[in-house]
């Protein structure tokens, strides 16, 4: 049986896969093109269709996840708009560097190695800081309800972000959570993340989300919501660009989106239930899984062993399944813990 020219079983696979990606996307503000494009390539779709459809899917999922984060008051539109300006300039420079490296015949190797080190480095750093702060949190474990207009606790701001916030270079901007930071610092961070994003040819959620938290001091749930808002703009532009060359297949995007819409609601809602340190640990673990997977994929080209490419993709899928499952499990555990802690007060 076929629907929209696609076999029913394939449609169900797309819906299920979309659900898993949606949970991760709503929870971390990243993971769309990271997972969808390689999966479509493995299924045998041409590169342009895989990238274009992946981009269109990311755009649709980001719209849904951003709306959900907006409902929770976790989107800082002013910061998001400023980030778009800096990121766009950075992406352009990143692309120019790639073109220069291509002329030298070094692009593939340099980008591959940088990608592995970036994913692995950020993954290690995030996991380490989350594990280090584990247990020092006196909030009682669960529930993380920061909204963009809530005052942030100074103890929750990372040291690097405090240093960046201390530079008093006018004009100073007041962001959600009462954070005051120089406009130039925001544009500088956005430019640097855009540069890496353009250089690596990725959406950049895995760079931008930690950058917003560690460098600017934005609380994690707001960093996720604001990052998603930025992905709406960049993903929409990407979908339009690939749509011009016929690279978007709605037969793929529509069922993927049907699954991710539900997953993104669950993932976004989970950010206000699950403890912030748990979010960081999952984020770090997923990046570490991604780093190992990309290392396998890069080795496949170097050693001319296509099997390593398949191993890499399986690793990405497994780590995504594990982490999305862990997000749902943590949410259920936290809901039960919250119910138990409030029960005596109600008696």
């Amino acid at each position: 049986m076929e629907l929209f020219g696609i076999a029913l079983t394939m449609l169900l696979v797309f819906v299920g896969f979309g659900f898993m990606v949606g949970v991760l996307f709503g929870f971390f503000g990243m993971g769309g093109s990271f997972l969808v494009t390689p999966a479509l390539l493995v299924m045998g779709y041409p590169t342009t269709t895989a990238v274009g459809s992946g981009m269109a899917f990311v755009f649709g999922t980001a719209v849904i996840a951003t709306l959900k984060h907006r409902d929770l008051g976790q989107v800082d539109y002013k910061l998001g708009a400023l980030m778009v300006v800096g990121t766009t300039a950075g992406i352009e420079l990143g692309k120019m560097i790639v073109e220069h490296l291509e002329e030298l015949g070094l692009a593939g190797g340099v980008i591959g190695v940088t990608y592995v080190f970036m994913l692995g480095g950020i993954g290690l750093f995030v996991s380490y800081t989350a594990l280090k702060s584990d247990g020092s949190d006196d909030s009682g474990g669960g529930g993380h309800h920061e909204a963009a207009n809530d005052e942030i606790d100074p103890d929750d701001i990372p040291d690097i972000a405090k240093k960046i916030q201390s530079y008093n270079v006018p004009p100073m901007m007041t962001l959600g959570g009462g954070i005051r930071v120089s406009l130039w610092m925001i544009l500088g961070v956005a430019f640097a993340t855009g540069l890496l994003s353009g250089f690596l040819g990725v959406g950049g959620g895995f760079i931008r989300m930690p950058a917003l938290f560690y460098l600017i001091g934005v609380p994690v749930p707001i960093a996720v919501g604001t990052d998603l808002f930025e992905i709406v703009i960049s993903g929409g532009f990407g979908a339009f660009t690939y749509g011009l060359s016929g690279g978007v297949n709605l037969g793929i995007v529509v069922p993927l989106l049907a699954g991710s819409a539900l997953g993104a609601r669950i993932g976004s809602a989970a950010t206000s239930i699950v403890n912030e340190d748990d979010i960081k640990i999952y984020f770090g673990l997923m990046l570490l899984g991604g780093a190992v997977a990309v290392a396998f994929q890069q080795s496949a080209g170097v050693f001319e062993m296509p099997i390593l490419d398949t191993v890499g993709i399986i690793l990405i899928m497994l780590s995504a399944m594990l982490v999305s499952g862990a997000v749902i499990f943590s949410t259920i555990t936290e809901l039960r813990a919250n119910a138990r802690s409030t029960a005596p007060a109600a008696d």
Binding site: G60, T61, G236, F240, G243, L257
Partner: peptide, 10 residues
């Protein structure tokens, strides 16, 4: 195309 995806998302 972008409009169709946006409408589906909404």
């Amino acid at each position: 195309l972008v409009g169709v995806i946006l409408v589906e998302a909404l």
